[in-house]
Simulated scan of single mutants.
Amino acid sequence: MTQLAHTALGELTTPALLLDSTVLERNCEAMAQRAAHHGVALRPHLKTSKSAEVARLATRGHSGAITVSTLAEVDYFARHGFLDLTYAVGISAGKIDALHRIQLAHAARVTLLADRVEAVRAAAARARAIGATFRLLIEVDTGGGRGGVAPDDEEALLAIAAEVQRSGSLTLAGVLTHAGHSYHAEGLDAIRAIAETERAGAVQAAGRLRAAGFTVDTVSVGATPTAVCAERLDGVTEMRPGVYTFFDLDQAARGICEIEDIALSVLATVIGHNPRSRRVLIDAGGLALSKDESAAEFRDGLGFGLICKADGTTPLAGLRVAELHQEHGLIACDGDSDGAAQAMFDALPVGSRVRILPHHACMTAAPYDRYHVVRGTGASVYAVWGKAHGWHAAGPGA
């Protein structure tokens, strides 16, 4: 972390990624309280922030255990002292060497994920060849349809567990599921139902393994919507939400958070007016904002992000990022008249700064290498926080 002598937002080179630490801390504390209420451990997914400073806030008062999704994140967080990491992407044998190097270099514990015997067999063989050992979770599909074994597919569950047991290099840790389909559920009642299906499926899979004589210490669930809406988590040992640290328009559109809970925004500069198209040009395009329009599934009028004044995060009525090119964004206003356009030009003069609230914080934050950290509606940056980016760990094969 780099401390700054309160650099003014107007001095930053744009586009810049802004993070409101006041909102961030509030979001982290609220999720920690939810986990405590349910009696489960919180293993936050840091793929959203990829930042050690955010991780310290998200794990404050807890074990320090985290979830990650790239080799770069495993490497980065281990170097920053986070030594209990679940790598929550199905394992491929080609990543075993890098993970082993990280474990050795930092005395870390990396837990793997798999949902097929073939993947377990290949990873285990490579681990044996280099003298590595890992814990492994079996991925369970509780409705997302992305990856995982059905919770009632006893044959597949037991086959994977047996392959782990005889591998000599892997140890069965338990089961893991992710209700990613909760991001498409309309209404909190629907999300509550998915949360219960997620919980019940993971517990069912764990029960089948235990009944067959396997030790299951970890029953892991995780998605921000279900973590917020779950009414019970009995039988679960940990939850792994991630985007709750920042929140975004996607979460606000479905009622998981309010606009004032969004901690992340992109600072951009107004670089032009186009009276012919009635657009304001900014220097934040598809790479700076991402082209994710996920919140549009539940709320109209969001474009590719909402526009706020530089010193706050209250959306300006009727303005949105309407179009994106690689390095250009085009702001439009409601109404299709010269008068409405002129009012927008007057409100956003060339050279002025705006903040944009993103649809999906994870996608927006990913390309950046740092956060410019602010407090509340202050117009200055008090710190710069680094972060991981890319996919590869340092070292051979990077």
Rank of each mutant, 00 (worst) to 15 (best):
A108L: 04
R232D: 10
T171L: 10
R370A: 07
G94A: 11
V374G: 01
G390T: 06
A98P: 01
A365M: 12
L324R: 11
L71A: 00
L357V: 07
L99A: 06
V374I: 13
A159P: 06
A52F: 00
A173D: 13
D152W: 12
A159W: 02
L137P: 10
L18A: 09
A123P: 00
F246P: 03
V384I: 14
C362F: 06
L24H: 10
E258R: 15
T67Y: 09
L57W: 11
S167V: 00
C257Y: 12
T48C: 08
T269K: 09
L176W: 08
G174S: 14
S92I: 06
K309G: 15
S92H: 07
F246H: 15
V68E: 03
A88D: 05
R79T: 01
L85G: 00
A65L: 01
D234Y: 08
L71C: 05
L157W: 08
D217H: 14
L137M: 14
C229L: 11
A347V: 02
C362M: 13
T67G: 06
L170M: 01
T13Y: 01
R43G: 05
A35H: 13
G174D: 12
A72K: 06
G187F: 08
R199S: 04
V149K: 05
G351P: 07
S63R: 04
E260M: 05
E198F: 08
F247D: 13
A332R: 03
T224L: 12
G61Y: 07
R146Q: 08
C28W: 00
V374N: 05
R121D: 10
D115N: 11
A202V: 11
D334F: 00
I282C: 03
D141A: 08
L57G: 06
L267N: 11
P241R: 13
A114G: 14
H178Q: 01
G390A: 05
G187V: 09
L319Y: 10
C362L: 14
R116F: 01
V149N: 04
L112I: 04
G301P: 00
T22W: 11
T269C: 08
D311Q: 15
E73C: 07
R60C: 02
A268K: 09
A36V: 01
G301A: 10
D152T: 14
T245P: 06
R199A: 12
R146D: 03
P15T: 02
I194T: 07
A398Q: 09
R166H: 02
L176H: 08
A190M: 06
L267K: 13
D250F: 10
H6C: 08
S337C: 07
G145L: 12
I191Y: 07
V216W: 15
A343V: 02
H360Q: 12
A212E: 11
E196T: 15
T269L: 01
G397D: 03
F77W: 06
E323Y: 09
P358F: 09
N27A: 11
G187D: 06
V120G: 01
T218L: 12
E293P: 04
A159Q: 12
A295F: 09
G312C: 13
L249E: 11
M344L: 04
V120M: 02
G395H: 00
H273E: 03
G213T: 11
S265W: 03
H360G: 02
A35Q: 03
